[in-house]
């Protein structure tokens, strides 16, 4: 048996969601979205649990979870950096921003820093094209980025996290 299956998530957290949606046809995506809100990602035992509760095969649930970019099968860091890959951002130099993030944090798309602080995720257009290039970190949008500005933002967040850690 694979190691990840041994990890035990607290499945009771999901019971409210399953009570509401498990028997409603067509709500698998909604259930997965709510589960991800609860756990921060979709642990494999949660996927099995949802499959059982909704009467789907685990393969089908996993199939849906891997089809959509919103769903994550791995835990994420404290700060989720969503780097916009839209056309306007591309034209205005998003690749240099990506390079700056990778150089500063040593992570690429989909990876998390070893200290668990940052996760980098490439996302489709965030729709703030006039501020391009853009990234969103935990819901806050940062626009008209330059590599220097990006690095400063990341360093500020790291300092903030360190202070919080000490407090």
């Amino acid at each position: 048996m694979c190691e990840c299956k041994l990890k035990k998530s607290d499945l009771s957290l999901l019971s409210g969601v399953l009570d509401e949606y498990a028997k409603v046809e067509g709500s698998l995506i909604t259930i997965l979205q709510k589960a991800q809100e609860i756990y921060g990602y979709l642990p494999i035992d949660v996927i099995y649990h949802i499959a059982e509760a909704t009467g789907n095969s685990p393969a089908k649930v996993l199939g849906v979870a891997t089809f959509y970019t919103q769903f994550r099968l791995q835990p994420i860091g404290k700060y989720l950096i969503m780097q916009c890959q839209g056309t306007a951002c591309h034209v205005n130099g998003s690749e240099r921003i990506a390079a700056a993030i990778t150089e500063e944090l040593g992570i690429r798309d989909g990876e998390t820093t070893e200290d668990g602080l940052f996760t980098l995720s490439n996302v489709a257009c965030l729709g703030c094209c006039s501020l391009s290039p853009v990234m969103m970190i935990n819901g806050e949008t940062y626009g008209t980025l330059t590599p220097e500005k990006t690095i400063n933002i990341l360093r500020e967040l790291r300092e903030k996290a360190e202070k919080e850690g000490q407090a």
Binding site: G86, T87, A88, C89, A124, C125, G127, C129
Partner: peptide, 11 residues
Amino acid sequence: DEGDPGAFMDR
């Protein structure tokens, strides 16, 4: 589901 990168009128 405004997916075209570079379009945001629907939003």
